[in-house]
Each structure stands twice: as C-alpha cells, then as structure tokens.
Amino acid sequence: MTAYEKLQAGASVRQETLYHPVEGSYTTKVATKNVTVHYGDKSALNGVSIEIPACTVTSFIGPSGCGKSTFLRSINRMNDTIDNARVSGSILIDGEEVNDRNVDPVVLRARVGMVFQKPNPFPKTIYENVAYGPRIHGLAADKDQLDAIVETSLRKAGLWDEVADRLDQPGTSLSGGQQQRLVIARAIAVNPEVILMDEPCSALDPIATARIEELIDELRENYTLIIVTHSMAQAARVSQMTAFFHLGSLVEYGPTEEIFTNPRDQRTQDYITGRFG
C-alpha cells in the first residue's frame, strides 16, 4: 500500500469516525488554549481559546487588524517565518501539540494546508503546481499515480474540465478565479486534514467568488476548513461555525446561525449590523 493509498484510506476513515452530521455533534479537530502572539513588543493576539469541529467550515470574522489572520497563521506555524513573531499558548490538532519541539513544521503543513488571499500559483505549469506537494512528500510511487493525484485534486477543486487539455501551460496564465482554484487543488493534492483559507475570495469577482464558495461547501465533506473573511454574507453562506475577533481577542464563537441572528455580545451585534468595522 503506497503512502497515497494509505492517505486515501485514511481520509475515508476520518470521514466516518469524525463527522456526525445527523446527530449534530462534532468531533473537535483543532483546539487552542490561550494562544497569544507578539510581533516584537506589539501584541497581536491575546489569549484565544477555541475548539474547531472536524469536517465543518469555520469562519473568522472581524475588523482589519483584529488578529484573525495571525491566529490562522499560528495553526500551521506560518508565523515561524516571520522573524520577530512569538507564539505562546497551546494549539492542538487531534490532540497533538503543534508548537511542540518534536513537531516538524514540514509535517504539520502537509497536514494543515493553506490558501492565501492573493492567488499565488508557482510560475510553473498547471500540472507542476499540483504535483509539487505530492512529489516533495513522496506520495506517488510513479508517474501514473502522480497523474491520478493531479487529476483527482483538480477535479475536487472543480478546475479539471477547464484545464484538462492544457496542463502544460503556466499556472499564471489562468484567470484570477481559476488561479485560486488551482491553489486550492495544490493544497488538496497533499491530502491535508485541515485547510486554512486567508480571505480566499477578496481578490476575485462575484462569479469566481460564488464558484469558490461552492467548492468550499463541497470540500467540507472531507476536510476541516477554516476561513478568514471580511464578507459577513460569505461567512453566513459557507460556514457552520463563526468566530468574531476584535482587537486581538476572540469575542464570540458559536454556530453561524446563532451569531448572525442572536449575538450575545454587543460588539458582535454592532459589527454584523455594520455599525463599526
């Protein structure tokens, strides 16, 4: 059994054991406790504790500079790449401490994929873009398996029909919406458990945005998605859980419906009704 097949099998196991939509109860995928992030002397995030369920879409909303992106980047340790960033507190994925000395960020990022605000495909062919992750992790034994991974990933990202006949063209030649879907396909290709999306639609037009939102909804079946968004409508459309951040703190967290219809905190109410932000 190759690594790819194992992962395929693993994915189905996860789906069966973790996701219980019928009962409406969720297994916790990501749990954080007291996460605090400092950039130099400046504190960007103070003491965020949250439990994010598996196989759901959780959206982080809040005004600019409230720390939601910082928090997102802490989950797959992308903040490590920023020189003066310090992260404290505990982040657990499936009960495993992310910031543990023994955890290699490479392994972590293979499990926790990321999609950025601006589509950032590699300046290589479409095929190479998707194949890069599986290749460096050794997920495919031969060319045929790699081809299969590329095709499945592109299909899952809803891009296959559009690019099947031009896989050898540069990824940068695609339109903005297509590029973002390519980037999602690239993230899916290494079969992560969690996908982090940092304002994935902010650079896209409404049609492309709708396409991505559809895709997010489809991906929920197999992956745990966490999305940072500025659009409350989008949060309401795609997510089951919503967290509202303000001035570096988590203000309110709960099922999306509740947050939008019956917020408990005044600040949340003000924000979602457009009174500030």
Binding site: N76, M78, T81, P105, V106, V107, L108, R109, A110, G113, M114, V115, F116, N120, P121, F122, P123, Y132, G133, I136, H137, V183, R186, A187, A189, V190
Partner: peptide
C-alpha cells in the same frame, strides 16, 4: 512564492 511553497509543506 515562499509562502506558497511553505504552505504545501516544503
């Protein structure tokens, strides 16, 4: 580009 590469686990 660096972030993209790191993001897929390079």
């Amino acid at each position: 580009i660096r972030e993209a590469a790191l993001g897929v686990g390079a």
